[in-house]
Computed example of a mutant assay.
Amino acid sequence: MEFPRRKDGPAATTRQAGNAAEDRALAYLRAGGLQLLARNYRTPGRGGGEIDLIMRDAAGTVVFVEVRQRASRDFGGAAASVSPAKQRRIVFAARHYLLHHGAPPPCRFDVVSVEADGVQWLRAAFDAAA
């Protein structure tokens, strides 16, 4: 996988690389039949959470997606980097999102791992009990 390069230097910023990984994950999920509802949803205030992508599948399930990027699978790869603390912040943000969007539909939490050798989509990677 090639990371984006800045015009004035050799490597992209962390934010640029993260945005490129999210773009790649979004294209992959859309090809898999999901529809984008929101991107980079954040809860207000300090200590809240963020959800990289909020999608809906063909059956109407709302899918909260954490996108993780790593250059290699060393130390468990990108998917292994979604810690229990990170899962709790994502669940918190998902609950906040659902409070402001009517009756809660079926939901799940997926992780999309973007690594040098490709994209891996882990459906139902964790649950709200995290």
Rank of each mutant, 00 (worst) to 15 (best):
His101Arg: 15
Ala78Gly: 12
Arg95Gln: 14
Val114His: 01
Val63Met: 03
Ala124Ile: 06
Gly48Asn: 13
Lys86Gly: 04
Leu53Ser: 03
Ser81Thr: 08
Val112Cys: 01
Arg30Cys: 03
Arg73Gly: 15
Arg24Tyr: 09
Gly102Gln: 13
Arg5Met: 09
Arg95Asp: 14
Trp121Ser: 06
Arg6Asp: 15
Trp121Gly: 03
Asp127Asn: 13
Arg95His: 15
Arg95Leu: 14
Ala38Leu: 04
Ala25Trp: 00
Asp127Lys: 06
Ala17Val: 15
Arg68Ser: 03
Glu66Tyr: 02
Leu53Cys: 02
Thr43Phe: 07
Glu50Asn: 04
Arg89Ser: 15
Val63Cys: 06
Leu99Met: 13
Glu66Pro: 07
Lys7Met: 12
Gly33Pro: 04
Ala85His: 10
His100Val: 12
Gly48Ser: 11
Tyr28Val: 00
Val62Ile: 15
Ser72Arg: 15
Asn40Trp: 01
Arg95Lys: 15
Arg24Phe: 00
Arg5Glu: 11
Lys7Cys: 10
His96Ile: 07
Arg6His: 09
Gly48His: 12
Val65Gly: 02
Ala125Trp: 11
Gly76Leu: 09
Arg70Ile: 00
Ala116Met: 10
Ala80Glu: 13
Arg68Pro: 00
Asp127Trp: 04
Arg42Phe: 05
Asn40Gly: 11
Pro10Glu: 11
Pro104Phe: 04
Asp23Tyr: 02
Arg39Ser: 05
Phe64Arg: 02
Leu53His: 01
Phe75Asp: 11
Leu122Gly: 06
Glu50Trp: 04
Thr43Asn: 04
Leu37Ile: 08
Gln120Glu: 14
Leu37Cys: 03
Ala27Gln: 09
Asn19Ala: 08
Gly49Asn: 03
Val82Gln: 02
His101Ser: 10
Arg95Phe: 14
Pro44Asn: 07
Phe64Lys: 02
Arg95Glu: 14
Asp52Tyr: 01
Ala12Gly: 13
Gly9Phe: 06
Asp117Arg: 15
Arg56Tyr: 05
Phe64His: 03
Thr13Trp: 00
Tyr97Lys: 09
Gly48Trp: 08
Gln35Phe: 05
Ser83Ala: 08
Pro104Cys: 12
Asp8Tyr: 14
Glu115Tyr: 07
Ser83Phe: 07
Asp74Lys: 15
Arg6Phe: 11
Arg15Pro: 00
Trp121Arg: 11
